[in-house]
Amino acid sequence: MRLNQNILLLGKKVVLVPYTAEHVPRYHEWMKSEELQRLTASEPLTLEQEYAMQRSWREDADKCTFIVLDAERWQAQPDTTEESCMAGDVNLFLTDLGDPSLGEVEVMIAGVTKLGLTKFEAKIGQENERSLRMFQKLHFEQVAVSSVFQEVTLRLTMSEPERQWLLEQTSHVEEKPYGVGS
């Protein structure tokens, strides 16, 4: 999504940066893991397909993807590459054009202030008990089960007090310009 292409979010423990071509080789290596493929309901891709996926995620109006960097490692040395600091990714999908306040998340970070989201959904494989427990601890509630896709849909609808609490908890996060040499 072009909305986040020039945004870096700097927190105490993590840095969120837009998913760029620089990140693809390490991401591709991660996604060779059969366990990660199973847990994320992903199919193995060739490196070329992974680059095409990165470009589509960057261009598509309904996807917002950040790479999660280890902040301590990233800030330790000026010549440290982002790829060497990668710890994961955060994805936000705008899945309902009729409801612009709804976004599907894979990890609940970002989306509240810039996009005006108040509802978050997570679709998790029925066998992925660790992820189901994590989202339930974050107060997501089960709203649907798909036997066809073998997944559970969990939803968090944020009230204004919850939104304010989240903003207070993330008030230390700095939004900075992102670009070459950041």
Rank of each mutant, 00 (worst) to 15 (best):
Q136R: 14
R2V: 13
L10M: 05
Y27S: 06
R133F: 03
D62G: 08
F93L: 15
V68L: 02
Q75H: 12
E83G: 00
V17I: 12
C64I: 14
L10K: 09
L166W: 14
Q150A: 13
Q37S: 01
E35G: 00
V68M: 05
L138C: 06
S182R: 03
M108Q: 11
Q142K: 15
Q150K: 15
Q150S: 10
R133L: 07
L9P: 02
E35P: 02
E106D: 10
V173D: 01
Q5G: 15
F66N: 01
V68Q: 05
L154D: 10
Q54N: 15
S147M: 01
F120Y: 14
S56C: 13
V143G: 11
L154R: 09
L102P: 08
L16G: 00
A21P: 11
V15I: 14
E174P: 01
A71Q: 04
I67M: 14
N128M: 05
D96Q: 13
S159Y: 05
G98W: 12
W165P: 00
M86H: 03
V90Q: 00
T95V: 13
V24R: 07
P161F: 08
Y19F: 15
R55Q: 15
S33E: 02
E34A: 06
W57P: 09
E35K: 09
T170D: 05
H172K: 13
R38M: 08
Y19D: 13
L8F: 04
L69E: 02
S131N: 04
Q77K: 12
F93A: 11
P78Q: 10
P44E: 03
Y19G: 10
Q150C: 09
E106A: 09
